[in-house]
């Protein structure tokens, strides 16, 4: 529950040992946030996918080779949020009430400083106007506006769902919302229950407990940006890889 004393800090724990790389999170995110199908000229750098699933291996030869799937999205930095601090237009907003880093496309001028500043490559620029196959635009989510060519966008923990949960609570005369009332599309759609979402500031929440486990870690933690997306794995090589360097087997190899 949202506490009057302590403001919520929404965050996520992704269990890499449970992820089978099915891509449901990517697709549910695209449906929820009206991200269009890939443009015919898009490549790995110019395509838009708020949540990308990347394959990471232990770099050992066959038959010792092992791999995990990494769903990567905006890490929702809580401290000195790099994208927010460089935006000249105040198009990136850090919500002090929730800790969510949101993008406001209508303010964005498309300078892409934020993309340069983001250490996780989690921001995407609209190189083309959004296009859907004929008729498919009628199946867009009415809670989220489409974005046009020339602006940056990224994951905002399905902020529209938070607004809807708050509106529902207000109608019912409540100020606080329950954890189950606000779940981003990626977490809701995960068939293997690999994505946990909740209030990190609530010591009793599942997400808070998992984030504190010894098997949990954050990406590029040494930068001090306090990301609110945690990963966990019981496989030691995953931690070793993260400590060394995040090596992606697929997405960083640009063959486009």
């Amino acid at each position: 529950m949202e506490s009057n004393e302590k403001k919520p800090r929404y965050g996520m724990v992704i269990d890499l040992d449970r992820c089978n790389g099915c891509g449901n999170c990517t697709l549910a995110c695209a449906v929820e946030n009206n991200v269009p199908p890939a443009h015919e000229n898009a490549n790995e750098r110019t395509g838009i996918t708020w949540m990308r699933v990347q394959k990471v291996d232990n770099n050992r030869p066959y038959p010792e080779n092992r791999s995990v799937y990494f769903p990567l999205t905006c890490q929702q930095c809580d401290h000195h949020t790099p994208c927010e601090s460089v935006c000249p237009q105040k198009a990136v907003e850090y919500d002090t009430e929730t800790g969510i880093v949101a993008q406001i496309p209508v303010r964005c001028l498309g300078c892409r400083y934020c993309m340069t500043a983001c250490p996780y490559h989690a921001r995407y620029f609209n190189w083309w106007d959004p296009e859907w196959p004929k008729g498919m635009e009628t199946a867009l989510n009415p809670d989220v506006s489409t974005r046009m060519r020339g602006v940056v966008e990224k994951c905002n923990f399905c902020h529209g769902r938070l607004q809807a949960a708050r509106a529902k609570a207000a109608v019912e005369g409540r100020r606080a919302i329950a954890d189950a009332e606000y779940i981003p599309a990626c977490a809701e759609s995960c068939p293997t229950k690999a994505i946990y979402f909740g209030n990190l500031a609530d010591a009793g929440s599942e997400v808070s407990r998992l984030a504190k486990e010894k098997n949990s870690f954050r990406l590029l933690e040494q930068l001090g940006t306090e990301p609110k997306v945690y990963f966990r794995s019981e496989q030691s090589w995953v931690h070793e890889q993260m400590n060394a360097k995040l090596k992606t087997a697929e997405k960083e190899k640009i063959h486009g």
Binding site: V106, P142, V144
Partner: peptide, 19 residues
């Protein structure tokens, strides 16, 4: 400047969700 940013994001050919 701000308004032009908004106007240019509301071109008629950009699909809008049905409310």
């Amino acid at each position: 400047l701000d308004d032009s940013a908004i106007w240019t994001q509301n071109w008629p050919w950009i699909p809008e969700p049905v409310r």
